[in-house]
Design a protein around this nucleic acid. Structure first.
Length: 529
RNA sequence: GGCGAUAUAGCUCAGCUGGCUAGAGCAUGGGAUUCAUAAACCCAAGGUCGCAGGUUCGAGUCCUGCUAUCGCCA
C-alpha cells in the first residue's frame, strides 16, 4: 500500500500526485475536470494530514495534431497551444484546484530536460536508430501492423485508397530489453497498477511480449528535436511522460529542491493511456535509474445520461454544462458528486442530471446539511446558542462516541490513502448518520420540555455537535468551501494541519458560539438546464 | 480475429474459498414524529440471481455451451 509511512504529522513526509498532462488539441470536458478534481481531493486530504504535498497537472502541447489544427486555423502551433492551454487553466479556477504547478511541454525547462534525458538514453544504448517497414495510410499519415492491414483489406478505412508499403527510419527505445525486469517489478508490486482489472490487462499483454517502440517521428516538426539529429522530433508520448520528472527538475542539475517529492505516490490517469504509464514509463525510469512511482491508478470514464460521450454524438459534458451544475448546486456539490460517484473502479459511471440531483438531495441536503442544521438549531433553542458541556453521563456515553469517531476517522483516512474516495466519504458520512439516529433515539427535543433535563440535553447536544464537527473535518478535502462555512458558523477556527489531532474527541470547547447553519440549500429538480 | 471482464430488485451495486426463507443504498407505497432544509425514524412491496445443460446431499457462488454488453490489442 502506498503512503503508509508516518501518520504522526510531526515529520512532514513528502507526497507527490499527478494528473496526466492534457492534450491541447482537445477541449476540456468532464473527464479532465474529474481527474484533476480527484487528485485535488487527495492532495488536500494529505495536506490536512500534515504531509508536504506536491500536486502537478499541465498540458501536452506538441505533435502532429496540434501542428495540423494550427495550420488549418492559419496560426502558429505555439499560439494555438497558448490559447488552448489557457482553456485548461480555466478548469483550475472553476473547480478551485490546488495544484502546485502547471507544467506545459513547451516550457523551456521541460524541453531542456527532455533532451537531456533522451540524450542520456541514446548515449547508453537504450535508444537506437532503426528502420521500420509497414503498411502506410498516406491520407491518415499512420502505419498499420500486418494483422491490422489485412483486416482492413489493405485499404485505408477512411479514403479507401490502398495502403502502401513504406519504410521509415526512427529512433527506438529498447523496450524489449526490459521485459523481464518489468514482469518482476509488477509481480513484486501488486498495487503498482490499479484497479486490479487494469493490472490484469497489463499482465496479459506483457505475456504477449514487448517490441521496441519508436521515440521519434519525421513526419512533423512541432516537437522537441532529437539531440544530435534534429530532423527527428521526439514522439509526443515520450515527451509527455517525462513531464512528471521534469516538473520536479529531475534532469536539471541546477534546481533539485523539488526532487524530494520523487517518486509519485499516484499517477492518476484515464484507462485509455494505461499502457504508456504501466509499461513504457516504468521501463524508461529503469533505464534512467530513477525510483518507480508507487501506483498508477487508471480510472474509467464518465458516460453521459447513459450514453458514451463521443464527437459524433456531440454529447460531451463540457465546461459550460459543469458551470451550470455549479451555478445551481454549488461547486462543492459537484466536487462531492465527482468524488463519491466517480468511475474509480473498472466500470464506467453515468453522469445524469437526475442522479446528480438525487445524490445532492440524499447525501448533502437530507443527511449532512440537515443534521448540521437540526443540531445547531437545538443548541440555539435549548442552550442559548452556546456549545453545552458534556458531563460524560447519560444517553449514549461519550466514550463510545470517542471510539466510534476515531474508528471512522481511521477508516476514512485509510480509504483516502488507497485512493478510495467514495469509501473515505462514506466513513465520514456514517458519523453523520449515527448522529441522526442518536437524536431520534434520545429525543433531546422532548427532554428539553422539562428544565430538569438540562444536563442530559446538554450532554446529548454536545455529542451531536462534536461528531458533526469531526465528520466535517474528514469532508473538508472534498468540500473545502462548505465545510469552511460550518467552521465559521460554529467558530471552529482554521484547520490545524494535523487532522488526527483535530479529529480527537472533545476538542470542541463548551461555550463556543454555535450558529444555526443551512449548508446545502434545497434545489428544485429541472429536467433540462 | 486474439486475450480478458461483466451479466443479481425500477436504479447503483454487495454477496470471500458452494450450505438455512438472496442483501444494502436510492427511488416507490404506508405509518409514526416534530429539533431540523416537507427533513431524520419505523414498516411494506419489489428478484425464476442473462439463457440452457452439468458436477454435488446442496450452486447466485464451480464446469461447459449459448446470448448480450464492455475493455485491451503497442
Amino acid at each position: 500500500m502506498p503512503d503508509q509511512e508516518d501518520h504522526s504529522g510531526t515529520n512532514a513526509a513528502p507526497a507527490y500526485i499527478t494528473t496526466p498532462i492534457y492534450y491541447v488539441n482537445d477541449k476540456p470536458h468532464i473527464g479532465h475536470a474529474y481527474t484533476t478534481t480527484i487528485c485535488d481531493v487527495w492532495a488536500r486530504a494529505k495536506r490536512f494530514e500534515g504531509r508536504d504535498v506536491f500536486f502537478l497537472t499541465g498540458t501536452d502541447e506538441h505533435g502532429v495534431k496540434v501542428e495540423k489544427s494550427a495550420k488549418e486555423r492559419g496560426m502558429e502551433p505555439q499560439a494555438l497551444a497558448d490559447e488552448n492551454a489557457a482553456e485548461f487553466q480555466k478548469v483550475m479556477g472553476l473547480f478551485n484546484l490546488s495544484n502546485d504547478d502547471f507544467i506545459r511541454t513547451t516550457d523551456p525547462r521541460h524541453e531542456e530536460q527532455v533532451r537531456r534525458f533522451v540524450k542520456r538514453l541514446h548515449d547508453q544504448g537504450d535508444i537506437y536508430l532503426g528502420e521500420f517497414e509497414g503498411w502506410y495510410d498516406e491520407g491518415q499519415e499512420e502505419y498499420h501492423t500486418e494483422t491490422k492491414a489485412k483486416e482492413l483489406d489493405y485499404k485505408s478505412p477512411i479514403s479507401q485508397r490502398p495502403l502502401v508499403r513504406a519504410t521509415e527510419t526512427n529512433y527506438y527505445f529498447r523496450l524489449s530489453a526490459y521485459q523481464e525486469r518489468l514482469e518482476k517489478f509488477l509481480a513484486e508490486n501488486p498495487d503498482f497498477v490499479r484497479p486490479e482489472a487494469r493490472r490484469n490487462e497489463i499482465l496479459g499483454r506483457l505475456r504477449e511480449g514487448l517490441l521496441d517502440v519508436p521515440v521519434t517521428r519525421t513526419n512533423f516538426s512541432w516537437g522537441i528535436p532529437f539531440p544530435g539529429d534534429e530532423e527527428h522530433v521526439i514522439y509526443v508520448w515520450i515527451d509527455a511522460l517525462m513531464n512528471y520528472a521534469t516538473a520536479l527538475g529531475m534532469a536539471d542539475p541546477d534546481s533539485s529542491e523539488r526532487a524530494r517529492y520523487w517518486p509519485a505516490s499516484y499517477h492518476v490517469i484515464g484507462k485509455e493511456i494505461l499502457w504508456f504509464h504501466a509499461v513504457i514509463w516504468p521501463a524508461l525510469l529503469m533505464a534512467l535509474d530513477l525510483p518507480q512511482p508507487r501506483c498508477v491508478y487508471a480510472h474509467s470514464f464518465w458516460i453521459s445520461e447513459g450514453q458514451k460521450m463521443s464527437k459524433s454524438l456531440g454529447n460531451f459534458i463540457d465546461l459550460e454544462q459543469l458551470q451550470g451544475y455549479m451555478d445551481t448546486y454549488g461547486r462543492d456539490a459537484l466536487r462531492f458528486f465527482l468524488a463519491s460517484q466517480g468511475p474509480l473502479g473498472a466500470t464506467d459511471s453515468d453522469f445524469s442530471r437526475s442522479q446528480f440531483h438525487e445524490t445532492y438531495n440524499t447525501d448533502l441536503v437530507n443527511t449532512l446539511g440537515n443534521c448540521a442544521s437540526r443540531t445547531s438549531a437545538m443548541i440555539g433553542k435549548y442552550c442559548e446558542g452556546a456549545c453545552p458541556t458534556d458531563t460524560g453521563e447519560d444517553a449514549g456515553g461519550a466514550e463510545e462516541w470517542a471510539q466510534f469517531t476515531a474508528a471512522q476517522m481511521d477508516a476514512s483516512l485509510a480509504a483516502m490513502d488507497r485512493f478510495d474516495l467514495s469509501g473515505s466519504i462514506a466513513a465520514a458520512m456514517a458519523i453523520v448518520r449515527k448522529v441522526d439516529a442518536f437524536i431520534n433515539e434520545t429525543a433531546p427535543f422532548k427532554l428539553a420540555k422539562d428544565p430538569d433535563n438540562a444536563v442530559t440535553v446538554g450532554n446529548i447536544l454536545y455529542r451531536c455537535a462534536e461528531a458533526v464537527r469531526i465528520a466535517s473535518c474528514l469532508l473538508e478535502a472534498v468540500m473545502p468551501a462548505r465545510m469552511n462555512d460550518l467552521r465559521v458558523a460554529w467558530n471552529l477556527g482554521e484547520p490545524s494541519g494535523n487532522i488526527r489531532e483535530e479529529c480527537t474527541w472533545g476538542r470542541l470547547n463548551p461555550g463556543t458560539e454555535i450558529e444555526k447553519v443551512a449548508l446545502f440549500p434545497r434545489v428544485e429538480f429541472t429536467e433540462s438546464e
